[in-house]
């Protein structure tokens, strides 16, 4: 066996810290995939994955939140059972709900850019409420827009049919998730150094 004689190039302390958080947030996104909270008067229960996409953007900033989401997608694609229903495989990313999954990195980065205004992460509790709400609504629109558009493309549905199947049933749940995310931000427990 040949010997590799290059010098060891250590990863910087700050990068290790952010990387570990991004990796565990991606794992958390997989861990909450089976959790469903029933919602009165709605056919679709709340799943927590989109809430964690919001939290990734809010707490990790645009770069590392997008990295975390890409990691989640790649891990699912290579066979770690992180997608809804303990599923995995590249096929899920090209299947009927692939559009939602592909949108996660963009949605998390969008929230990060809105809330942190750059790559330096700041405490989301210090950001004005309208900015946080706009960021969350924009991200939700992006997720459901990409999800429905991809579904209409892949299942040869027209736009209205795709929105009926892929977005309308989830609106009540999304409002609840946006409310939960805002309550978490306002509680001041999401500081970049420590989440309590």
């Amino acid at each position: 066996m040949e010997t590799d004689q290059r010098e060891v190039e250590l990863v910087g302390d700050a990068a290790v810290h952010r990387f570990a958080r991004a990796a565990l947030l991606a794992a958390l996104l997989g861990a909450v995939a089976p959790v469903a909270i029933p919602l009165p008067f709605s056919p679709a229960p709340i799943t927590l994955q989109v809430l964690f996409v919001f939290l990734a953007g809010l707490v990790l900033g645009p770069v590392w939140s997008a990295f975390s989401m890409v990691l989640y997608l790649i891990a699912g694609a290579v066979g770690v059972p992180v997608f809804a229903g303990f599923n995995a495989g590249l096929g899920v990313l090209f299947g009927q709900s692939g559009g939602y999954l592909w949108s996660y990195p963009f949605a998390a980065a969008l929230i990060g850019l809105f809330v942190h205004r750059g790559t330096d992460v700041r405490d989301p509790a210090n950001v004005s409420l309208p900015v946080v709400v706009t960021a969350l609504v924009a991200a939700t629109t992006l997720i459901y827009g990409m999800g429905s558009a991809y579904m209409s493309l892949i299942l040869e549905l027209n736009a209205w049919e795709a929105v009926t199947a892929g977005a309308l049933p989830f609106i009540p749940g999304e409002i609840v998730k946006i409310a939960a995310a805002i309550a978490i931000v306002r509680s001041g427990r999401l500081s970049p150094t420590r989440v309590r």
Binding site: L24, L25, A27, L28, A31, V32, V35, I37, P38, L39, I46, L48, L51, F52, L55, V59, V176, K177, A179, A180, A181, A183, I184, S187, R189, L190, V195, R196
Partner: peptide, 16 residues
């Protein structure tokens, strides 16, 4: 529902 979602999210995130 929003309280339940918020509690799971915040506690899950802080443990993670």
């Amino acid at each position: 529902a929003h309280e339940r979602a918020g509690t799971i999210a915040l506690l899950g995130l802080s443990r993670a």
